[in-house]
């Protein structure tokens, strides 16, 4: 487990931790990159929505269980479940000329996840994502 200041300039450290830890757990480079993407999108999401209070920290942990890589992400912001947006609002489902330029972060997290879970515990948003830890 590692924790980081909830600031965008910590993103490089967050990604380095996730990729290094994934490697230590024996996942392939591709799995490490998928995990990094998930961590980046969750990290930026909690900053962008102004939910992370000043000087707060985020906590990230990874473990491999039964062939799955489990990524835990916790922040100290206001209660916010990132997965509550209706699928119909997803930007990638709109016709190309109507697509907004952004908004794909949660779509990517959701698509790479085998399962996901959100809980509000002890004034923290606790997200857990499971993805295949295979070799490809």
């Amino acid at each position: 487990m590692a924790d980081f200041p909830a600031r965008l300039d910590e993103l490089t450290a967050v990604l380095a931790f996730v990729e290094r830890r994934s490697g230590e757990l024996g996942t392939s480079r591709d799995v490490a990159l998928r995990a990094a993407l998930i961590a980046e999108e969750l990290f930026v999401n909690c900053l962008r929505h102004g939910l992370a209070p000043e000087r707060s920290r985020v906590r990230i942990e990874l473990q491999c269980v039964d062939g799955e890589l489990e990524l835990g992400f916790e922040d100290e912001g206001l209660a916010f479940d990132p997965f509550t947006r209706p699928l119909a609002d997803a930007p990638h489902l709109r016709p190309p000329h109507e697509r907004p330029i952004g908004g794909l972060g949660v779509v990517l997290v959701d698509s790479f996840a085998l399962r996901r879970d959100y809980r509000r515990l002890d004034a923290r948003n606790c997200v857990r994502i499971w993805l295949p830890a295979g070799t490809a």
Binding site: L33, L37, E41, V44, I101, L108
Partner: peptide, 16 residues
């Protein structure tokens, strides 16, 4: 090697 939603946003800007 890697592109997140921030990079996809730039590609969408190119398209627009």
């Amino acid at each position: 090697e890697y592109i997140s939603s921030a990079g996809l946003r730039v590609l969408m800007l190119v398209s627009k």
